[in-house]
Design a protein around this nucleic acid. Structure first.
Lengths: 133, 133
DNA sequence: CTGCATCCCATGTGATACTG
DNA sequence: CAGTATCACATGGGATGCAG
């Protein structure tokens, strides 16, 4: 029994840690702003409401599937609100919620850091790649 | 020919946009801080240098592979420095670079936002899930 | 117009076993 | 101690076609 203890303890620690990670607010937030389209969409909504196809045109790289999927996810998390106008054909408008607006400054902070320092990252990368052939 | 124009134009716009995305500093930074272990490692290094196994113990959920891989990536991007002491057995120490230290405040900003607002996200999520059975 | 369903591939992540 | 190598798997993301 005693021989198993070390491995056993590590396993339990890992399980605990994994559970913690699932709860960890920071980790979850990173999951949100880390995905490919969330931030882009939020930033596009900063200037006011936008319709579905409108957003699609503003983000030429996005597929309909990802646009819908990301929008749903943002809606579920309370960052955007969705309102349908039952005309024919229907109009669907997406708006930033208060919570969504509060996220904008953070997104801007990320953007600013990137603008200021990603050049250094490029240099570091070039140097790293160069020094080992 | 003219019938193809619309689709054609969209394709070109997409290609352009994709190229832009690859360059976009913000998007690249999100790729860095968005991955599972980068931020955690950087935050652990905040208090001073750490050795490989030491980091591993501080992050019970990480596999050796991911620890190495993430560390390599952070080193390449210039966020951490790796120094080897050729004793027997060898010692490898990881330290935050100046660039890495400059990233910490941003990471903290993310953490703070998460601590303050993820509760609201949970509520929104619960409400969303509840309202559509 | 807005969105869902399906299929498919690339990538990220992890478990395990092995090495200088 | 500090990795490397290999295999396996889940997820993210995209293309296409259909529907209300």
């Amino acid at each position: 029994m005693t021989t198993m203890t070390a491995a056993r303890r590590r396993q339990e620690a890992k399980a605990e840690f994994d559970a913690y990670m699932d709860e960890c607010p920071t980790h979850r937030l990173r999951g949100i702003i880390g995905n490919k389209w969330s931030s882009m969409i939020l930033l596009r909504l900063e200037d006011g409401p936008r319709r579905y196809a409108d957003l699609g045109r503003a983000l030429p790289g996005v597929s309909a599937k990802m646009l819908t999927q990301t929008l749903r996810s943002l809606e579920r998390d309370g960052f955007v609100a969705r309102s349908v106008t039952p005309t024919v054909p229907v109009q669907v408008e997406y708006t930033l919620t208060v919570l969504g607006e509060r996220l904008i400054p953070l997104l801007d902070a990320v953007r600013q850091w990137a603008d200021r320092h990603m050049g250094e990252v490029d240099e570091a990368r070039a140097h790293y790649d160069a020094t080992r052939t």
